[in-house]
Each structure stands twice: as C-alpha cells, then as structure tokens.
Design a protein around this nucleic acid. Structure first.
Length: 147
DNA sequence: GCCAACGTTGGC
DNA sequence: GCCAACGTTGGC
C-alpha cells in the first residue's frame, strides 16, 4: 500500500428520518450534503478521522430504528457551516444506495456477529465507527444494495 | 411520553 | 479538577 493511504474505514450516521432521511440525502445526488449539527466531541472526532471514499451506513433513529442505506464520504472534516463555534466540524456525505432489506436495531442486537457493534452498545453516539466485519455482516443480512 | 444513559457546563 | 445540576438523545 502507498504511503499516506490506508484501508477504507466504515462508519454509521444516525438521523431522525422525520428531520433528514436517507431519501432526503439521495435527493441531493452526487453533491451530497454536509453532516451538520453534530455537537458531541466523540462524534466529531470520528468525522475528523474519516477519509475520502470511506463508506458508512445511514441509520434512522427513533422512527424505524433501522439501517436503511449506504453513504460515502465526499469531503473531509471542515467547519460546520451551521455553527458559529469553530470547534464543530463535519464531513460531507452522499447516498450510494438503499439496502434491499433494512436491518432493524432488534435484528442487529440478535445477531451474534454484531454483539460488539457500537450501535448495539452505545445508543447515544450519533456518528460511530463500524468494523469491516460488521459492515459486511449487515450488508449480507440486508441482501446487499438496491440497484 | 417517559426516563436511563450519557455528555456538558459551571460553581467552587 | 471535582462533581452536582442540567440538557439531550434515543430506546422503550
């Protein structure tokens, strides 16, 4: 592997679908959208660690409580345009595709291979890392991506 | 709608 | 730098 590169990493972004859903992100097309509004250091630090091309799940919290699609990081962490406080940064993401079958939190909790997943163990972290194995497991359970 | 879990704030 | 008070998230 070349210097300065690393393997793709995987993440999970939570959003309440009545506020901003995966369909809303999809509607933004290839220019995607700023993942603004994060006001939690751990979540921000996760976004700072992201690199272009990293992929993640889009999770609907509160309503649905399920993984609904896959996204890609298209801009590195930069100041959150919705905040006057320079501490808060965010990346931009775009939608890649919805999963064929959404995977609910209950299903993730019931899957032994996902027992270490942050989603299952820390319900309050809104931007979280996902291991390559966890990413593959959820995609497998979901039957892959649409399209 | 409740509330547990967790994070942040601010007084000391 | 501790910790009580407070606010928020998000599952239930």
């Amino acid at each position: 592997m070349e210097k300065g590169h690393r393997l793709m990493q995987y993440w999970l972004f939570k959003s309440e679908p009545n506020v901003f859903s995966f369909d809303d992100l999809t509607a933004k097309g290839d220019k995607g959208e700023e993942w603004d509004g994060v006001r939690n250091y751990q979540a921000r630090n996760n976004m700072r660690a992201m690199q272009l091309g990293d992929r993640g799940f889009f999770y609907h919290s509160n309503i649905g409580k399920e993984v609904v699609g896959v996204v890609e990081v298209i801009a590195l962490a930069h100041p959150d345009s919705k905040s006057d406080d320079p501490r808060w940064e965010c990346v931009d993401i775009k939608a890649i595709a919805p999963v064929i079958r959404p995977i609910s939190l209950d299903e993730a909790k019931a899957e032994p291979r996902l027992s270490q997943m942050v989603l299952v163990n820390n319900s309050r972290l809104s931007v979280q890392p996902v291991s390559a194995e966890e990413f593959a497991t959820i995609l497998e359970l979901a039957g892959g991506l649409k399209g």
